[in-house]
């Protein structure tokens, strides 16, 4: 009875509303990654202030969630742009195509570094990717030698590598839903995992088992899922100098008086090292544009022009002030040209 009434009321309102609304939308709708969110919002705000268009609406849904919404179809009720902290997958391109989203323009924005950091009051740590893998994987190669795997026995960093301090392994990191976690696992853990030849050999034979070893983080309490909020991790590090935290470079940049980044494979996580690609744990950031919406929704081309202008993503642009690492000049020019011509993405793989 009550449910009937609710549905009836909802249906009446919906009917009244959808006739008004379905016709048009005068602002750009952006969804996607929470990592790209801080950068996309700055561009959107500047775009809204300096042009006659409305400020785009930007939702933080995560890369996967954003692509799902983006690929749901063409029309004003679907978003125009999705941000992603990883490249679109071929399965997602197919999903898009099956819903009529054929032409997608890919724009690489810049890079983001993932840092491992601890409190300023503690000793700075020099890690290698191999150390990271051995300290955090669920299963590691037997420390006594041989080509078999055992449950991770390491309790302190010193046990992992004699050069590291005698400190309990206590790492605060993002949960599995986070794009930062995906990238960390792929770049740092797998990077270290590959240094063991017998595991590397497995990649060809049994890809699934290989991924299971390299991508699974231990669950015995040494790795603590500290939630998506990077600010919280920074605060926890400050109060616990023994812990190491994993978060995005922009948070290290903003809190350089409280935390220090650990070097990975001998490279410190600095702006320059991430920009030239020598810091190993960094990833590209993207956004994807629905070509069918260009011209239908006002301002998309102008928004793209703002995003790809030198004052935004250039070496001294305002995105750099917000902690984004710009691409090298040549790559930037190429993407800017692609955006201008609205060149459509073709996945080679």
């Amino acid at each position: 009875m009550i449910k009937n009434r609710i549905v009836l009321a909802a249906a009446l309102t919906a009917a009244a509303v959808s006739t008004v609304n379905a016709a048009s939308r005068d602002y750009i709708s952006v969804v996607g990654s929470s990592t790209v969110y801080p950068f996309a919002t700055v561009v959107a705000e500047n775009f809204g202030k300096t042009t006659a268009f409305k400020t785009p609406k930007i939702e933080s849904t995560g890369s996967g969630g954003g692509l799902k919404l983006f690929c749901a179809g063409v029309g004003v009720e679907h978003p125009d742009i999705t941000n992603a902290s990883r490249r679109i997958k071929s399965s997602e391109v197919e999903k898009c195509a099956s819903n009529g989203v054929m032409d997608i323009v890919e724009v690489k924005v810049g890079y983001d570094g993932i840092v491992m950091a601890n409190a300023k009051s503690a000793e700075q740590i020099k890690l290698t990717r191999r150390d990271v893998f051995l300290a955090l994987a669920k299963q590691v190669p037997n420390p006594k030698g041989g080509e078999d795997l055992v449950e991770n026995p390491y309790k302190t960093w010193k046990q992992v590598n004699a050069a590291l301090p005698d400190m309990d392994i206590e790492v605060l990191g993002p949960p599995p839903t986070s794009g930062t976690r995906d990238a960390f696992v792929e770049l740092a853990m797998e990077g270290g995992c590959k240094t063991f030849d017998f595991i590397k050999a497995m990649k060809k034979k049994d890809k699934k088992a290989y991924k299971g070893i390299c991508h699974t983080i231990r669950e015995d309490g040494a790795f603590i899922e500290a939630g998506e909020n990077d600010n919280l991790i920074v605060q926890k590090l400050e109060s616990n100098p023994k812990a190491i935290g994993i978060f995005g470079f922009s948070f290290l940049d903003q809190n350089s008086d409280k935390v220090q980044g650990s070097s990975v494979d001998g490279i410190a996580p600095t702006f320059e090292a991430i920009a030239d690609g020598s810091y190993p744990v960094s990833r590209p950031l993207y956004f994807y544009v629905k070509k069918a919406h260009v011209g239908k929704i006002p301002g998309i081309q102008e928004y793209l022009a703002e995003f790809t202008s030198d004052k935004a993503w250039g070496d001294e642009g305002y995105l750099v002030d917000k902690g984004m690492i710009p691409m090298p000049n040549q790559e930037r020019n190429q993407f800017a040209a692609d955006v201008k011509g609205l060149n459509v993405l073709k996945l080679t793989k």
Partner: peptide, 15 residues
């Protein structure tokens, strides 16, 4: 599921 996907109301609206 109901208001946005079925009735097609806009996302992010206070309604």
């Amino acid at each position: 599921a109901v208001f946005i996907n079925f009735f097609g109301l806009p996302r992010s609206a206070p309604l």
